[in-house]
Simulated scan of single mutants.
Amino acid sequence: MSNANGRISVVNFVSLDGVIQSPLAPDEDSDGGFAHGGWVPPYSDDTVNAFMQEATVSAAGMLLGRRSYEILATAWSGADESEPAVAAMNRMPKHVVSSKLREPSWQNTSVITGDLTSAVTGLMARTEGDLVVFGSGTLVRGLAEHDLVDDYRLLLFPLVLGAGKRMFDESGQLSRFSLADSVATSSGVVLLTYDRDR
């Protein structure tokens, strides 16, 4: 399915065994019983940080699941905007796919309910540029199932976590992507960009 204007770009930290859970802080997903939270910071060199800053600053907006939205809102809403990525996140439109979120507290946030495919395709038709998806495993699986992802920008970390929430499950459909860019960092992280073959 092609988006006439906007694009959906999934940007995620991923372990070698596909885990995306609790990458930044040990306690950010404490209700899930995940034992290895906070696995990204030890590997975050200048190249990793620049990759994430560019993905954030260049985005037209964010498309998020409720849980990832709440984590990001807690961390960055009202934070010091001297960092370009923080200023960009506070400024840009944020669209949250949720049946539970009623009154979002983070500025410039709207809630998406109802049919995912029609809601997202409508949103993309009104968007110029990339809507980035951070984390949001359930949302990513739903987008992939309906072939709505235009590119994956994955930061592949050199560790196996053994358990945790993964970006993909057994649902979805066959979708082919081409490797657009790859960079190996000094810390062993590989930055991979895959574009959808359409």
Rank of each mutant, 00 (worst) to 15 (best):
Ser171Leu: 09
Asp147Gly: 13
Asp17Phe: 12
Gly172Phe: 08
Ser186Lys: 06
Gly38Lys: 03
Ser82Ile: 12
Glu170Ser: 08
Gln107Ile: 03
Leu24His: 12
Leu123Gln: 05
Glu170Gln: 12
Ala184Leu: 11
Thr74Phe: 02
Ala25Ile: 03
Arg91Ser: 13
Gly188Thr: 01
Ile20Asn: 02
Val10Leu: 04
Ala25Lys: 14
Ser178Ala: 06
Pro23Thr: 00
Met62His: 09
Glu128Ala: 12
Gly65Val: 03
Gly6Ile: 14
Arg176Ile: 07
Phe134Gly: 14
Ala88Ile: 00
Ser110Asp: 13
Gly188Glu: 02
Ser9Gly: 11
Ala4Gln: 14
Ala88Val: 04
Ser2Asp: 09
Asn3Ala: 12
Glu128His: 14
Glu28Ile: 03
Tyr43Lys: 07
Met124Thr: 12
Ser30Tyr: 12
Val48Glu: 02
Gly38Leu: 10
Glu81Val: 15
Trp39Tyr: 03
His146Cys: 08
Gly32Met: 14
Asp181Cys: 00
Ala88Leu: 05
Phe34Trp: 13
Trp106Met: 08
Pro26Met: 01
Leu192Asp: 02
Val48Ser: 00
Gly137Asn: 04
Arg102Gln: 11
Ile8Arg: 01
Gln53Tyr: 00
Val10Gly: 05
Phe51Arg: 09
Gln21Pro: 02
Ala55Asp: 08
Leu139Pro: 02
Phe13Lys: 06
Ile20Asp: 01
Met167Cys: 06
Ala59Asn: 00
Val111Tyr: 02
Arg67Met: 13
Lys94Gln: 07
Ala73Val: 00
Ala73Gly: 15
Gly129Thr: 01
Thr113Asn: 05
Gly114Thr: 12
Met92Gly: 00
Gly78Val: 04
Leu64Ile: 00
Asn12Cys: 11
Ser15Ala: 14
Met89Ile: 05
Ile20Leu: 08
Lys94Asn: 10
Ile71Gln: 13
Leu123Pro: 12
Leu156Asp: 08
Phe13Glu: 13
Val48Trp: 03
Ser175Asn: 12
Asp147Trp: 05
Asn5Glu: 11
Ile112Gln: 01
Asp150Ala: 06
Thr117Gly: 14
Phe34Asp: 04
Ser44Phe: 13
Gly37Lys: 03
Met89Ala: 07
Ser136Asp: 08
Phe157Arg: 01
Thr193Tyr: 00
Glu145Lys: 14
Arg176Gln: 14
Glu145Thr: 15
Leu123Phe: 04
Asp27Ala: 15
Glu170Asp: 14
Ser178Cys: 07
Trp76Pro: 08
Tyr152Ser: 05
Ala60Trp: 02
Val183His: 10
Thr193Pro: 10
Leu63Glu: 08
Lys165Pro: 06
Asp27Thr: 03
Pro84Val: 02
Arg126Val: 03
Lys165Glu: 12
Leu64Arg: 06
Leu63Met: 10
Leu159Ala: 01
Leu63Asp: 08
Asp27Gly: 13
Ser98Gln: 12
Asp181Tyr: 07
Leu192Glu: 05
Ser44Ala: 13
Asp147Glu: 15
